[in-house]
Design a protein around this nucleic acid. Structure first.
Length: 291
DNA sequence: TACGCGTGGGG
DNA sequence: TCCCCAAGCGT
């Protein structure tokens, strides 16, 4: 079953959220920053940080000139701080090799650190108004239901998912970009993972899932992401100490955050390997690029 | 393809 | 409480 672009785009015009990175005056750089921050992180937590970043670093070259440690502090508790480091690295490349202008071409974007299949297409579509299939978790869920009549999307498959959306996408650039934004917004506001609000859905009449009687999802269960007790938690605790101190700290200070010495040391090592932490010549630890 | 990677809010 | 989930990426 297909999706009527006009119905979806009209719904988006009326019901879509007024987010700062969607305003007409937002630059492609602002769009790129938003897309990186929004990877696995909810809009409500991103918005205030995005505002600070765009004020402080309105162009890629401005971010590129900042120290990594400052960037990580400004990232705060958005999570997955490697994203901040990669965005900083991408800004350096954009400033140096692309005249401080975010590329509009999908393949050029894909070559930048931290920019993958989703983000490259999102920047092309939302930053430059181009026609490019944009597939995120929301889009996959909406397509699974409205088009395929399934309760939810199965495991991601780049080739398949992109082909699915390619078929739905309007031909011209501007409507295609609006359609992509609308599809994502529908998944974020109405066709949500738990408790979809079908009564409010503009696609209700033509939804394959509705017509099939809203069958439950039958595919493989999604892997559970545990957190308590994992290295991810310990790394987060270690980084939180370093974000909160102006001066490098001795290892004894870091030892306080987690009782298991083996796991603690493994995590500190991995943070050093990832470039999220640096050791000073006197053996203390700090965020990178400041000492 | 499967896994590791932060953090916090809502049901 | 606990569990699920949130605009993915790199390996």
């Amino acid at each position: 079953m297909a999706i009527d672009p006009d119905i979806l785009i009209d719904w988006f015009a009326e019901q879509g959220r007024d987010l700062p990175w969607r305003r007409a005056e937002c630059t492609p750089w602002g769009v790129l920053v938003s897309e990186i921050m929004l990877q696995q992180t909810p809009v409500a937590r991103v918005r205030p940080v995005w505002e600070e970043w765009l004020e402080r670093w309105p162009r890629p070259s401005a971010l590129a000139a900042a120290a990594q440690g400052e960037v990580l502090r400004a990232w705060g508790k958005l999570g997955y701080p490697r994203r901040a480091l990669r965005l900083h690295a991408a800004a350096e490349v954009i400033a140096r090799d692309h005249g401080d202008v975010v590329p509009s071409d999908v393949d050029t974007l894909l070559a930048l650190p931290g920019i993958g299949v989703y983000t490259a297409r999102a920047v092309a579509a939302f930053g430059y108004g181009k026609r490019a299939p944009v597939v995120d978790t929301n889009v996959r869920r909406v397509v699974a239901r409205a088009v395929h009549g399934a309760g939810d999307a199965g495991p991601a498959s780049n080739t398949r998912d992109l082909a699915d959306v390619e078929e739905l996408l309007p031909d011209r650039d501007a409507p295609a970009a609006s359609f992509s934004a609308a599809l994502m917004e529908l998944g974020a506001l109405v066709c949500v993972a738990r408790g979809p609000r079908c009564a409010d859905c503009p696609l209700h009449a033509d939804c394959a899932w509705q017509h099939a009687g809203r069958p439950a999802y039958t595919g493989p269960a999604k892997p559970v992401q545990r957190f308590a007790g994992t290295d991810r938690q310990v790394r987060g605790l270690l980084l939180d100490v370093l974000r909160g101190t102006a001066e490098p700290v001795p290892k004894e200070r870091l030892d306080l955050v987690w009782s298991k010495a083996g796991q603690r040391d493994r995590c500190l090592d991995s943070l050093l390997v990832d470039g999220l932490v640096e050791q000073t010549p006197d053996g203390r630890f700090a965020l990178p690029g400041e000492y």
